[in-house]
Design a protein around this nucleic acid. Structure first.
Lengths: 240, 240
DNA sequence: ATTACATATATTGTATACATATAGCAAGTT
DNA sequence: AACTTGCTATATGTATACAATATATGTAAT
C-alpha cells in the first residue's frame, strides 16, 4: 500500500515536474512562509526603511494568527532586517551608509580570502562553469541580476571548500546588497561589473592569485562605494 | 492601591540607588530573559550538544508560557546555537570541528584586518588600557577568562572604528569559542596566550603593523587548532 | 493656538485552549 | 525473535482570549 502511494506520487509529481523529495517538506510551518514573505517585502522595498510593522496587519494579510508572526519577527530581527525595541512596535531597519560600507569591506575581506584558497584547486570545469554564469549575467533582466551575480561569485569560491565562510558571504550579500540594489535602482555599474567578471575568470585561469585577489577586492569595493554614494544622495534628498 | 505600590517602588528603588526612569524599562519581556537563560545553559554546557529541548519543560522551568519560549528558540536558532527541524523537536547544535576551524579562520581574517586599521590611529591611552586588560588576564579565574580575553582583544581593535566588524567578531567569539572553551576545560594554552598578548601590545606600540598582523593571526589560529584538536579527541572518545 | 491631562482605543505581551503531528508502546503476525 | 500495525500519550503548531502597555483622541486650562 505504501509502495502504491509512492508510485502514485511519483507519477503525479512528475507530471507537475516536482521532485519527489518535496513531499516531505511540503507542509511548511506558517512561520517559515511568513518570514520569507516579510523578508521579501523588505528586500524589494515594499516595506521601506523605518516602516512600522503591525503584528495584526501582517497576521490578517497572510491569514494566520499573531503567534507565528511574532516568531517570524524575531527571526527577522536576528537578520537585522527589523528592530524590535524593548517597548513599542517593530520597525524596518534604517540603512546606515557606514554600516553598509563596513559590510562591503567584510565581503571583500572574506571573498578575497576565498578566491585565494580556491584558485590553487580550481578545475577546468570550475572555470567553464564560471564563464557560463558570467554569460548569463550579460543577458539577464534587472530582476535577475542579484541572484545571477551571486551565483557567479559563489561558483568562483566553491573550490575553496569553505561552506561556513560562503554562508557568511551569502548572508552579507543578500541581507544588505540586495536591499540596496532595489533601493537605488541604478544599473550604472553593470558594464564595469561584467567586464571585471571576465577579467577575474582569466586571472583564475592563469592561476594569478594576487592578481585575482586585487581585482576582486576592487570589484567589490568599487561597487560598494558607488552604492553607498547613491544611498547617501538618496538619504539627503529625503531629508530636504 | 496602584499609587501605593508606586510609592513603595519609589522608596525601594531609591534605597538601591536605582534611577526611577529604570522602572519603565525595568520590566523586560519574558522572551529576552528566557533567551539569555537558554543561551547561557548552552554555552556553559548545561544543555549539551544534541540535547532535545522541550518547550513545555523550558516554559515551566522559567515560569512562563510556551509563547515566549518559542520566540526565544527562533532567536537561538538564528544564532546557530540550536536547530529547529521542519518537524520534530529543537536540539542543541552539534559542534562540527571543520565549522569551528572555519570560524577561527574568519576571526583571524577580520581581527587582523581590524588591528591593521587600528595601529596607525592608536593612542598611548589605548596601549595603556590594553596593558591593564592583559594584566587582568594574568590573575583571573578560569570563569573570567572568556570575558577578560575578549575585552583585551576588543580594546586593541577599538581604534579601528569599525563597529559592525567588531560586532561580527564578538558574535563569532562568544557563540562558538566560549562554548568550546567550557567543553574542553583545558587551560593549557593560557601561558602562551598571555605571552603573546604582551608581544602584541609591544608590536602595536612600535607601530609594526605587519608584525602585529602575523602575531595576531598565529595567536588566534594556534588557539583554534589546539581547541579543535581537543574537540576532535573528545568526539572520538564519545564515539568509542 | 497650544499645552497638559485624562480617558478611550488600539496594539502589544502573555497565557490558555484547541488541532495536528510525532513518538512510544503493546499486541498481533510472519 | 523481529517486524508490522494500531493505539495512546505527549509535544508541537496555531488560534484565541486575556492582561498590560502604548497610542490616539478629546477636553480643559493657560
Amino acid at each position: 500500500m505504501c509502495y502504491y502511494l509512492y508510485a502514485l506520487n511519483f507519477i503525479f509529481l512528475h507530471s507537475l515536474q516536482i521532485d519527489s523529495y518535496m513531499i516531505a517538506t511540503n507542509k511548511q510551518k506558517a512561520v517559515l512562509k511568513v518570514t520569507a514573505d516579510i523578508r521579501g517585502k523588505i528586500l524589494d522595498g515594499s516595506f521601506p526603511a523605518g516602516m512600522q510593522l503591525s503584528q495584526e496587519d501582517i497576521a490578517s494579510t497572510f491569514d494566520v494568527s499573531r503567534t507565528p508572526v511574532r516568531e517570524a519577527l524575531q527571526i527577522l530581527a536576528g537578520e537585522e532586517l527589523i528592530e524590535i525595541p524593548s517597548s513599542g512596535r517593530a520597525t524596518v531597519t534604517v540603512i546606515s551608509p557606514s554600516d553598509v560600507l563596513e559590510k562591503f569591506e567584510l565581503r571583500a575581506l572574506i571573498e578575497t580570502k576565498l578566491i585565494g584558497l580556491a584558485i590553487p584547486v580550481m578545475s577546468a570545469n570550475n572555470i567553464a562553469e564560471a564563464r557560463v554564469l558570467a554569460e548569463n549575467l550579460q543577458s539577464c533582466t534587472a530582476e535577475q541580476w542579484t541572484d545571477f551575480n551571486y551565483q557567479f561569485h559563489e561558483a568562483l569560491y566553491r573550490p575553496a571548500n569553505r561552506p561556513t565562510m560562503q554562508k557568511f558571504v551569502k548572508e552579507l550579500y543578500y541581507r544588505h546588497y540586495s536591499r540596496l540594489d532595489t533601493l537605488v535602482k541604478s544599473r550604472r555599474n553593470v558594464p564595469r561589473s561584467l567586464r571585471e567578471h571576465h577579467e577575474l575568470i582569466s586571472l583564475c585561469e592563469e592561476g594569478d592569485i594576487e592578481g585575482a585577489y586585487y581585482k576582486l577586492e576592487t570589484h567589490i569595493m568599487m561597487g560598494g562605494y558607488a552604492l553607498v554614494e547613491q544611498l547617501k544622495a538618496l538619504l539627503n534628498k529625503d531629508n530636504l
